[in-house]
Amino acid sequence: MKTKIALITGGYTAESEVSFKSSAFVYTQLDKSLYEVYEIAIMPEQWYYVNDAGIKFEINKQDFSLMMDGHVVKFDIAFIVLHGSPGEDGRLQGYFDMIGLPYTSCDALTSALTMNKGYTKAVLAGISDLYLADSVLLFASDRDSASQQVQDRLSLPFFVKPNAGGSSIGMTKVKAVSDLDEAIAKAYDAAHTGQQVLVEEFIEGREFSRGIFKNSKGELVVLPASEVITTREFFDFEAKYIPGLTDEITPADITDEQNDRSERIIKDVYRKLNCRGMVRVDFFLQSETDKFYFIEINTTPGQTEQSFIPQQVRAHGMSETEFYTEILEGALLVAKTNG
């Protein structure tokens, strides 16, 4: 009997467009001989499934079941490919915990924590060979004094970003103090990001992204690194999603020592944040010092054919089908172990 998979997509933020692209790709790669897959859209107005005939069926939120064609479909596991809220900030994970449905991503606490960039940096402080850019975390109550706080504590240039949010939405690189107020307002006003702003000193160097996952044997596997080279000022939303603006080199051209060091650091990050499933860690390699600086962690990384994780999976010598099977079977093993 096939395992019933709820492939979770959509979302309540502007990242829903990316989620639908990710889930469409994942759907084509899942092993249909093992899994019966239902693509479930989680949208503000409705949670639903659309069958091959284009008929929409609403999810019963009491138990996340699906009444369809006179019978009830109950799922064995949720494969979360929903970027942003509520699939990346712990809300959906908390709901699944309450109804007892296993899922592929980090748990509710880790998801909520890692969605908060400032809090994540605080937890990661102390990891050997991992460096953190000087920063200021601004709350809603700091809005009137935000610009002065930043100027008092940090040196130009700055990265100004929503403290919660993804896809570089609401982010600005500030090279002149005269542009700071506008950048802070943009970050504060980004939708669904919690009225918190993180301002960091800019780190000059090469930018990398590297995935890590726990396989079906419970082993941590770090994927090959990808280097990001963009014609934009930084790796912003347009650079991420408009073809031709960015070169992504996988595997990255790094030394054996840099590869081993980043692999060890990323495993430490995964353990310290109590991650599950697959995550992606972004970091800078500072030009002058060769130090690795943490940028952020993504607990629901993009899964289009061009996204970093699928690129790295292929560079690792796996097919996406094999990789997603490992993710699902690993999550099912955790669920069985935890009872």
Rank of each mutant, 00 (worst) to 15 (best):
Q62C: 05
D247T: 06
K214V: 05
D142M: 09
E322A: 02
K74E: 14
D69V: 02
Q151F: 06
L92R: 13
Y48K: 13
E219G: 10
L30M: 09
I309F: 02
G205L: 07
L138Y: 06
R232F: 05
P157R: 05
E257T: 01
A41V: 08
F292R: 07
E322G: 00
T300N: 05
D31N: 11
H71W: 02
G11Y: 05
L328T: 06
I127G: 01
V136Y: 09
G100L: 15
V279P: 03
K74F: 11
A140Y: 03
T231H: 14
N51G: 10
T172A: 08
I327R: 15
I169T: 02
H83P: 03
N51T: 10
V228Q: 11
D179Q: 12
D260I: 06
N215G: 12
I203S: 04
E227D: 02
I327S: 11
D152G: 04
I169P: 06
Y131R: 09
S307I: 01
D107T: 12
D134A: 01
T193K: 14
A239I: 11
L137K: 14
S178G: 04
P301E: 10
A183R: 15
E200K: 09
I266K: 14
T255K: 12
D181S: 13
T250G: 02
L245T: 06
K2F: 07
T110K: 07
I212E: 11
I212R: 12
P224W: 06
V228Y: 10
Q303M: 10
A176T: 13
I254W: 11
S287R: 15
G211W: 04
D290Q: 09
V73H: 13
T193E: 00
